[in-house]
Design a protein around this nucleic acid. Structure first.
Lengths: 232, 232
DNA sequence: TCAAAAGTGTTGTTGATACACCCATGA
DNA sequence: TCATGGGTGTATCAACAACACTTTTGA
């Protein structure tokens, strides 16, 4: 079992980068966190947040590092989307880039970070053109988000810990870009039995006020362990 | 827009490899094409087929090259699964590996190739332990195969051009590892209206003989272009 | 003539959709 | 008192699951 010291030295090496497709939800809209690139090539053009892989870190470590540096947040929901390896995708040099998508509860994202990194939340509806193959990445990330949203309760990653049913519905409508019937939505989401109804109401968004709910992670985990398949 | 010559030279470089999770279907069983590794480390242990990325090729080119060299076939159904970047995944050196899964119609796979590369079809049921993180890759590839099989008509990639309904059912049963009702299966698959019934029967697998069908790619493409969502 | 696999319809259940009115509240 | 958004129930339809017998043919 002991490996001899084969070093693969006859094979070429490549720069490996990561790009993060960061989704958030603000003012009833699905948004993407982007910035104006500060280095050449494409300096000053809109870009996803990214960075290079370092010697002593795994890919997931690197993605987490980039998100942590940018947002100050730990334990962000994150998933690999795809790896991009076209030869000329970066005109400056050959770079293999692994795209991750991340969901962040935008209310926990502070403006200080935003200023420091020049980060901007942009509504998906008026997204500017992005550099290189970043548009493709976003497209693919959005598809993944839709798929995930319909099979796992990830919507909760984008909302505050306490939220109302109408809020949750607005989120799903933003994700799917289509209107949902509120009676059917409520019925379906409550039938999953993974929401805890709280005593208080949210009185900010309406006069009447809507009851707050919290996602019951324990119950959800229990269901999943029992082979349950969450579906919206 | 003209990039200055930024060369990213302060960032480290890595070996980039590809590993192929190659599924086939033989004798009513779902199989995986593997071999005994010929280089250190892990020489002589069961491994997926893989190889290193070259300077002048994209990731998909590389995956296609590896599959072509191994099978002699072009236009194989192939899809990226995930990229593996743990630091110690290969004890000999740091290697980032992109895992692809591929479906090959095993009847078109010749034994010569098999001998030349020491390739072996192994039933998923009695799969030996594989090196490094290849077990994880296979697990993930299998999940992807199941997901795809239920949303795209990929089953046809694994069968000869002409096949019978019972054959197709056996394939789906092998993929899902569960028995299906033949009346319901036939009803459902025919209702998709993407199979062309032929005049001839296959008389090899039964006395009575079963009608042969062919997948109607044109019709399928037409449906998909019209927004149709194939589902099994 | 019999064993082995192909082929065929109906029924009940469940989940999805469509749809309209009353309620609570702050301004 | 009224405008705004929150909350509720039912009826219809489509998709899915369960289920048993007849047909063909080579040995």
């Amino acid at each position: 079992m002991g490996p001899k010291n084969q070093d693969y030295s006859e094979h070429p090496k490549f720069h490996v980068a990561l790009d993060c497709i960061i989704f958030g939800f603000e003012q009833g809209e699905l948004k993407l966190l982007i910035h104006k690139r500060r280095i050449e090539p494409f300096k000053g053009h809109w870009s996803l947040f990214g960075g290079f892989l370092k010697d002593k870190e795994s890919l997931t470590d690197a993605a987490n590092r980039i998100l942590r540096e940018l947002t100050g947040l730990e334990k962000i929901y994150m998933e690999e989307i795809q790896t991009y390896g076209e030869i000329k995708r970066d005109p400056a040099a050959r770079v293999i880039s692994v795209a991750y998508y991340a969901l962040i509860p935008s209310h926990r994202y502070s403006d200080e970070h935003s200023k420091q990194y020049g980060a901007t939340w942009v509504s998906l509806k008026d997204l500017p053109a992005l550099i290189m193959d970043h548009d493709t990445m976003v497209e693919k990330g959005l598809m993944r988000l839709r798929r995930r949203a319909s099979s796992q309760p990830i919507g909760f990653e984008l909302l505050p810990r306490e939220f109302t049913i109408p809020q949750l519905q607005t989120l799903y409508e933003a994700i799917y870009q289509s209107e949902l019937d509120k009676r059917n939505f409520r019925k379906k989401i409550l039938s999953k039995d993974v929401l805890i109804k709280l005593e208080e109401k949210d009185k900010i968004h309406s006069r009447k006020g809507a009851f707050l709910y919290r996602f019951d992670k324990r119950k959800y985990k229990h269901l999943v362990d029992g082979g349950y398949n969450f579906t919206i």
